[in-house]
């Protein structure tokens, strides 16, 4: 595939020209991740939903003046975060990550070594991740779950690349300290080392 023009850029271009189908497709491609991300730091589903709607409505209304975008997902994440911060300040409802999903995955009490170890690790990691400070979790999520590059994360969050790296480093060190009793975590460290 021609790396200079991606499928999404084509959609973006069509959107700029008023193509509603392209608009709908862009929504379909991104609403889910935007929703997940939005709920990460604003525990108010309604506000997140509203913000996503506003974002897309704004996109449509200003389509003619949109600039060329190479990474649509990045553009949308950054815009959504800006809107959410504004909304949150307005309603003073900047809240911590919820733990409503908390104990969904309860430990199951049968022991097949590998499987069990992995389950334990997942639980432990989930718990650890949930305990991370909001900002660290956000960086970790953007990096590992949403696959953004360091410079993109910096731009989305409006902080320097250096602080993205520092925050990541802190988060991972924290995870490492908390998980040292689990053998497979050695492997995780290895994995993370590859990541960087």
């Amino acid at each position: 595939m021609d790396p200079s023009i991606s499928y999404e850029e084509t959609l973006w271009d069509a959107l700029k020209h008023g193509n509603k189908d392209a608009f709908g497709t862009l929504y379909k491609l991104h609403y889910r991740q935007l929703y997940g991300y939005g709920n990460k730091f604003l525990r108010n589903t309604q506000l997140v939903e509203d913000a996503i709607q506003d974002l897309f409505v704004h996109l449509w209304n200003t389509r003619e003046s949109l600039s060329q975008v190479h990474n649509v997902k990045f553009y949308l994440f950054r815009a959504l975060r800006r809107d959410l911060v504004r909304l949150a300040e307005k309603s003073r409802r900047f809240e911590d990550i919820g733990d409503e999903l908390a104990e969904k995955n309860q430990p199951e009490r049968y022991l097949f070594e590998e499987e069990e170890q992995e389950k334990l690790l997942i639980q432990k990691l989930t718990r650890m991740l949930r305990k991370l400070p909001e900002r660290q979790l956000e960086v970790v999520t953007l990096r590992f779950f949403d696959n953004f590059k360091t410079e993109e994360i910096a731009a989305i969050m409006g902080i320097s690349e250096k602080s993205v790296r520092n925050t990541l480093y802190k988060a991972l060190t924290h995870l490492r300290e908390q998980t040292h009793d689990l053998v497979p975590f050695i492997e995780l460290i290895f994995l993370l080392s590859i990541v960087y």
């Binding site: 889910r32 709920n39 639980q123 990691l125 949930r130 590992f144 492997e187």
Partner: peptide, 19 residues
């Protein structure tokens, strides 16, 4: 490694709210 990668990603997806 793959198992750990999976664990990490799954832990994160457990935390991810989906509409």
């Amino acid at each position: 490694v793959i198992r750990s990668a999976r664990a990490m990603l799954r832990a994160m997806s457990i935390l991810q709210a989906t509409p």
